[in-house]
Design a protein around this nucleic acid. Structure first.
Lengths: 146, 146
DNA sequence: ATGGATGCAAAGCCTTTGCAAGCTT
DNA sequence: AAGCTTGCAAAGGCTTTGCATCCAT
């Protein structure tokens, strides 16, 4: 890792190592806050912006990718060999990962037709998870503008 | 429209009509600011929050959907019969709409397998548009943490 | 009248950045 | 030494909300 970063012009520091380690130990869809919490448990002296900047760095060197579920918080997904998408329950916010290989195929074709070079895919299916399907009707009866 | 809203418990007002009209006249991927600008040209007295709340309302009654491209701004897409996805150039931020019917198919299958009831799809392909492909290499040479 | 709708100003929240000091290389 | 990093505090930038007032029904 240290080598990997060096070749890209970055240095390895104690905090950086802690942050990288923590990030990869956590699951997917990690937010800055979540990672910050985890890191703080191991080293109370690490600053929030350091975590934030390192998360950005992880993305910059291609080890992770930002994910935006529209809840106002940017999350980060480790880039794995298997690209995945999400089933996002709009009621309970639960996320379920799905393999999107089958969906990527037609997208590559479309990209080609538009002379577009794809680098990544964000696929999200919004809807209701099994346990929230019953609540669905109530939901649509909301009122008030705010 | 007035009727439609009434059945859902909302009233029609002068501002609301202006906002709704403007929204549907504009293209896709409209941000609150953009809509606000357009509305202000027609009526300087309309407030920002009114535009914001009405955009939310349009979504709530199912006429539009929030789109999040990860640039920190929430955009709104009119819900049309034909669902579409986007080719998002990470360099120039250009958006190109694509028909995602072919990609939805496998996603529905996956949803079914997870006992998930899909309501909408967000599909975004990140990459480089034709004119930005040459810049691609330079881009990856970025340095500095911030 | 009644309750939703509006405008303004003020919060809220998360994301970024300026700086001076501290560490790798 | 040179330059990337870090922490802290302060900005930013967009999204929400409190409230008193206004307006549609």
């Amino acid at each position: 890792m240290r080598e990997f970063l060096r070749t890209k012009g970055f240095k390895m520091t104690q905090q950086r190592e802690l942050i990288f380690r923590s990030f990869f130990e956590l699951g997917e869809h990690i937010s800055v806050d979540e990672l910050y919490e985890k890191v703080r448990k191991l080293d109370r002296s690490v600053g929030y912006s350091t975590v934030w900047r390192n998360l950005k760095l992880i993305c910059r060197v291609g080890l992770a990718q930002e994910v935006n579920l529209g809840d106002g918080v940017t999350r980060y997904d480790r880039v794995t060999r298997a690209p995945h998408g999400h089933l996002y329950c709009v009621k309970c916010k639960k996320l379920t990962e799905i393999n999107i290989a089958a969906a990527i195929d037609p997208l590559q074709t479309l990209s080609r037709q538009n002379k577009f070079v794809p680098e990544g895919y964000k696929i999200e299916v919004q809807g209701y998870c099994e346990s929230c399907q019953k609540e669905r009707d109530k939901e649509s009866r909301g009122r008030k503008t705010h």
